[in-house]
């Protein structure tokens, strides 16, 4: 369709084909997402208005599930507790990621001996299945496990330290598990940001007589923004929604004394019941909790995401 067609006709047909192709390109992803994700998500609103134990008839209760979660002391206290602990969990992880991750990524970006090997080793835990990591680390920090044995035998401690057995340390230990598992990913994202720094800018800054630290601060850090934001968003969404570690290690009761309870475990317990009581389950209330969680993190996630986009 070149020489014989006149220019305007050619343009229209190009445009038409373009639109068809565009729609064809868009279709698979949109269809997949809509069918298996977005449309079920919309049905969540409906579900949050019923009382339903997961089987049998659904009983319409209006906004009862929301009022119960927000005002009934038994549920409200659990919700607040889970929310605060979830925030702590998130902050500990993100601080570790950004501090240790940036430090290690920096060191990997300069000429150090064996840095290729270090890269591989640092990344090693990340591809491991969460279930395997959870079981492994649970055994590792057990009072009779390797870590405590080493601490006691070397004389650092008199008696085993109850990492997961005390309500003061269990949540922190859980966030350390998460950090141990995912640090490699944070390092790589930050490293990729650092490697993208244009060396001519750095050279110029060094020639201007800036110290190393000043060059890093003024030339490298600003470039790392998108990486930091990406890590923050991914981690935020993950820790507020998924609670696989706690579920696998502590079960839905999120012990000791609910000290590892986060939104994911609270929601799971509401939908499927805890190990202490399997009779009291309500998918409707779980949907309400999910919606409330989403309302809380959605603005933060969207803000960060859009900022990330707009910056570029």
């Amino acid at each position: 369709m070149s020489s014989t067609t006149s220019k305007p006709v050619h343009r229209i047909s190009y445009r038409a084909v373009e639109i068809i192709q565009r729609n064809l390109l868009l279709a698979p992803g949109v269809l997949l997402y809509a069918t298996f994700n977005f449309i079920p998500l919309l049905a969540l609103f409906q579900l949050s208005l019923v009382n339903w134990p997961g089987i049998g008839p659904k009983v319409y209760v209006g906004f009862d599930n929301f009022t119960k979660v927000l005002t009934h002391p038994y549920y409200r206290d659990q919700m607040l507790n889970a929310l605060i602990q979830n925030l702590v969990f998130f902050v500990v992880i993100i601080v570790c990621f950004l501090l240790i991750g940036t430090l290690l990524a920096m060191l990997l970006s300069v000429k150090t001996w064996g840095r290729k090997t270090y890269q591989v080793i640092f990344f090693l835990p990340y591809p491991m299945a969460g279930a395997a990591v959870a079981y492994l680390l649970d055994l590792f920090v057990h009072p009779r496990g390797p870590l405590n044995a080493a601490l006691v035998q070397s004389g650092l401690l008199d008696s085993p330290f109850p990492f997961l057995g005390s309500e003061d340390t269990a949540l922190i230990t859980m966030s350390m598990f998460y950090t141990w598992h995912r640090m490699g990913f944070a390092i790589m994202l930050i490293l990729s940001g650092i490697l993208a720094v244009r060396s001519d800018l750095l050279e110029a800054s060094m020639l201007d007589g800036a110290s190393r630290w000043q060059s890093i601060r003024h030339v490298v850090f600003p470039v790392l923004g998108p990486a930091f934001i990406l890590i923050t968003v991914i981690v935020m969404v993950d820790v507020f929604n998924n609670a696989d570690y706690v579920l696998l290690i502590m079960g839905p009761e999120a012990g000791p004394l609910r000290s590892t309870d986060i939104m994911g475990t609270f929601l799971f317990r509401t939908a499927f019941g805890g190990s202490a009581d399997t009779t009291d389950t309500n998918f409707g209330m779980a949907a309400a909790i999910g919606l409330l969680t989403a309302i809380m993190i959605l603005p933060a996630a969207l803000f960060l995401a859009l900022r990330n986009l707009r910056q570029q």
Partner: peptide, 17 residues
Amino acid sequence: CFLIGVAIPIRLALAPL
């Protein structure tokens, strides 16, 4: 719509799914 999916996990919508 995709961004909303980033923030709300699908396991919440288990029953409809």
